[in-house]
Design a protein around this nucleic acid. Structure first.
Length: 569
DNA sequence: GCCGTTTTCGGCCCGACTGTTTTCAGTCG
């Protein structure tokens, strides 16, 4: 049983209890537990089966520990099954309609006996909704307008799309007369791998200036909401964006507040309360007096806290880190000296060896590894032993003709479904750099997946596991693997782990990368470039590493090539 | 339902916007 499956049970329970009017804090307890479980790297199921004390996890007490044991041992949750019988799934779908929450859904279900989005639509069209107490014509119209959005899965966008939109709009807002400061906030600023919506913060004396500009912005399709300080718009891409306008003396407090995460802010406010202070988006207050708010630094300093990098603000380890001393200095894009995963025209890349090397050099990289596919990946024109050896000779020629950048002869070698390597050991032994990867058979059972990964980790020539889980963000789950076991073996056999920087992969994810760091495994951030522009994605890999709390010393390719080589086995 | 050195009960972050009210509830972030 995967952690996400257990978390899903609790999320569902929370939704169902909410519709039934359960105590809001009880509902929150289920959501908190779901969040803890899905952000834990080790298998909760294994931990429970092996007799571990589940109450060690934050937000899980005696009762929820018992519920987890029930889910793990029986594969289901009796109370959840009971609630599901009482509340049809169509009722839960109603929660996805923007502007409709548990209270309204409760009215639809309990009083109007509506059990699906179709029935709700019919009721709204017949004018039944507007006649309910507390409802009116506008609510009914909003439901009809928004119900379509609930029918379509509300897709989150990748961090790459989010940054392109948010950074572009921020840049344009900064050009306006009267706009003093502007910044992206929210999950985009925290560099989460996907964003559900976008947040932008502006300081300006006249809120009409940025609001009118945003309403007319080429990215924007419609204005959904507009007040004195807050405007909500829908972008042409379908994503919604919140704009907040605050005075200059509150910009830092608002930036802190709207960057979140919600969980981080709950702790910040709790700490403020302990100090007899109040924190809101306008500042830190002692009584009615504002004592901080102009910058984020001021806000955190007023609470005795360091200014956390946004990537760490998830209430995972940041408060413990701050308590232990100065925050670690997280790795930055500028720290990266080499890129060790890329393709050329020899397999499925679009650039030649020389073109890729020149492009990397132009970006200030000091060394690269050319790592084309092995033969199993036939649709990508993967290389067999003889073509690979020929390819390496070509690389050596380019190496001699280009100065200012070192080029390693590498290979991205598939780990086959039968737990053998796609190329013989004597070939791998000749490589400067061997990335082992799973491409096929990702749905094999955990035992076989682990057997394959162990085959790679224990191979004396394998240097690193590339995109270890094989997941595609929002599109495909990774292979069912025991990450703790894999990382232990990697540490024992001096095999590194990749953070694949492509925004569709970002694999390892932040949680797994943090665990790898904890185990002392060197991590390499690689672009997996297939074109000369492919290096652009490096920034997303660095973001993911920062979310994992990684510093320069954790990331092997921040080192010079000489120092990097000393890490190889 | 969780949590705890102002503890085993009584808290649990806080404000903006909208719609339906005429002072507030629901939703959202």
């Amino acid at each position: 049983m995967k952690n996400d499956q257990i978390a899903e049970c609790f999320e569902l329970l929370a939704d169902l209890l909410e519709i039934q009017g359960a105590n809001a804090f009880r509902v929150r307890a289920y959501r908190n537990a779901a969040r803890t479980i899905s952000s834990t790297a080790e298998s909760i199921s294994d931990f429970s089966t092996q007799g571990g004390d589940l109450t060690e996890f934050a937000g899980i007490g005696r009762d929820l520990a018992k519920q987890i044991q029930e889910i793990v041992s029986t594969g289901q949750h009796a109370q959840l099954e009971e609630l599901k019988k009482q509340v049809p799934s169509g009722v839960l779908d109603m929660l996805r309609i923007p502007g409709v929450g548990p209270k309204k859904v409760a009215v639809f279900f309990n009083e109007l006996h509506l059990t699906s989005l179709d029935e709700l639509r019919a009721a709204a069209e017949a004018g039944v909704i507007a006649r309910q107490k507390g409802f009116g014509k506008k609510t009914e119209e909003a439901i009809l307008k928004n119900i379509q959005m609930a029918t379509e899965a509300s897709a989150r966008i990748s961090i790459a799309e989010a940054r392109a939109a948010a950074d572009g709009i921020v840049e344009d807002l900064l050009k306006l007369d009267g706009v003093k400061q502007a910044s992206a906030a929210g999950s985009c600023r925290r560099r989460k791998e996907t964003c559900g919506d976008l947040d932008i913060l502006v300081s300006c004396d006249d809120s009409d200036v940025p609001m009118n500009a945003l309403a007319a912005h080429p990215f924007v399709s419609e204005v959904l909401q507009q007040g004195d300080t807050k405007q909500r718009v829908r972008l042409k891409s379908g994503v919604e964006l919140d704009l907040r306008v605050v005075p200059e003396e509150s910009f830092g407090a608002a930036l802190q507040y709207f960057t979140g995460s919600k969980e981080h802010n709950v702790v910040v406010r709790g700490l403020a309360k302990d100090l007899g202070l109040k924190v809101n988006e306008y500042g830190v207050f002692r009584g009615d007096q504002q004592i901080a708010g102009r910058t984020e630094q001021d806000v955190y300093a007023a609470l005795g806290l360091p200014c956390f990098p946004p990537e760490l603000r998830e209430n995972r380890h940041e408060f413990a880190l701050a308590a232990a001393g100065p925050l670690p200095k997280l790795v930055t894009l500028e720290d990266i000296q080499g890129d060790l995963h890329m393709h050329t025209t020899a397999s499925d890349g679009m650039g030649t060896i020389a073109e890729m090397a020149e492009a990397a050099k132009a970006r200030g990289l000091k060394y690269i590894a050319i790592t084309d596919h092995s033969k199993r990946v036939s649709m990508a024109n993967g290389l067999d032993a003889s073509r690979l050896r020929q390819h390496w000779k070509e690389i050596e020629k380019v190496r001699e003709s280009i100065s200012g950048i070192e080029i390693l002869c590498g290979i991205e070698c598939d780990i086959l479904e039968d737990a053998t390597m796609d190329l013989p050991d004597d070939v791998l032994a000749e490589a400067d750099w061997v990335i082992a990867v799973l491409h096929y058979g990702l749905k094999q059972p955990r035992e076989q997946i682990m057997k394959r990964l162990m085959c790679a980790v224990t191979n004396p020539h394998v240097d690193i596991i590339g995109h270890p889980t094989g997941r595609l963000v929002g599109r495909r789950e990774g292979a069912d693997l025991n990450i703790v076991e894999l990382l232990k073996a990697a540490a024992d056999h001096r095999v590194m782990m990749e953070i694949n920087a492509h925004p569709k992969r970002l694999d390892l994810d932040d949680i797994h990368a943090a665990l790898a760091k904890e185990m002392g495994i060197p991590i390499v951030i690689s672009t997996d470039s297939h074109t000369v522009n492919g290096f652009d994605v490096l920034t997303f890999g660095v973001d993911q590493a920062r979310r994992a709390g990684l510093t320069c010393s954790d990331v092997a390719n921040t080192r010079s090539l000489k120092d990097f080589r000393s890490l190889l086995k």
